[in-house]
Amino acid sequence: MDPNHRRNQLLSIGGTALLAALLYAANSAGSDYTIRILNNCAIFIILAVSYNLINGVTGQFSLEPNAFVAIGAYTSALLTLTPMEKEISFIIEPCIWPLSVISVPFAVSLLAAGIVTAFFGFLMGFPVFRVRGDYLAIVTLGFGEVVRVIANNTQSITNGPLGLKGIADHTNLWWSWGLAVLTVFLIARMVRSSYGMAMKAIKYDEAAAEAVGINAFWHKMLAFTTSAFFEGIGGGLLAHLITTISPTLFTFFLTFNLLIIIVAGGLGSITGSILAAILVTWGGEALRFLDEPMDLGLFEIPGIPGMRMVIFSLILIFIMIFARHGILGTREFSWNWLSGKLGIGGRPR
């Protein structure tokens, strides 16, 4: 259909290779701090892009990612910890069988995290999609809390408030960015397929979508379950990055951060979610200098702890004032758009 298809494919491969080269450079020359931020960026890209699928693309405003990330993180961490480590960690109540004896490779644990989370998402979808709009937001928010409370109280599975410690730090740049690229690739493909179009149709007008034969409920379930799958993988990566997880990590604040990212990026835009994920994760660190004392020549500003959060909030407020629909609205990056902007041409469609 698109005459520039081949060129675009090559450009995409080239772009991925460039990213790989940059990561290689960062991996060998970058400080631990840089590497940590880059890992965070990749994980938040995964989380934001998959959250955007249900909130932005399908337009179902929901507030459950903290639940999904928690399920994914616990699943994969419990699967990679060795039986010995579990015996040491679970001091109040021993870990239940068969979790107590299982130990699998990292890759398997990530896949399992995705599948288990998707399964929970699927089950959760039945009750939550009986409602819409504000009610959906409230019900999903409730689920997020329920998962956290369960994690706190199922001592023999999650080790309760003590959390899991000593998780191997398997997550490196290759894992995090590799999976981020894969997630973006798959979700972008899906959104461009007719299933994605049907999801967008539901967002714009659910009644009209039903009128053209789209089963709104199942398409919402599809978006929700897919979103859960990738949130679960993101959770697994997160657990193996920070190596210690406990229920306090997965409060509503996590969901709230992701919500800021997808709204600032533009609800429904994958590119927007990626940009905003990088901006928020990296920007939060880059603004750290604002907390330090500053010498502006004429006068000196004493360090005000928390100043960066004030500035960060102001930036977000400005984004929302001047770009009401987020940085990108519902637009997406494409090679055709870029070559058009640069005036390099390519064959017109």
């Binding site: 007719s194 179009m197 149709a201 714009y204 007008d205 053209v212």
Partner: peptide, 21 residues
Amino acid sequence: IRLFSELSVIENVMIGYHCRI
């Protein structure tokens, strides 16, 4: 009229085929 506002004209029609694939 209830069209899918942000979608293109052709996409609005293509969606009609989705239930048949």
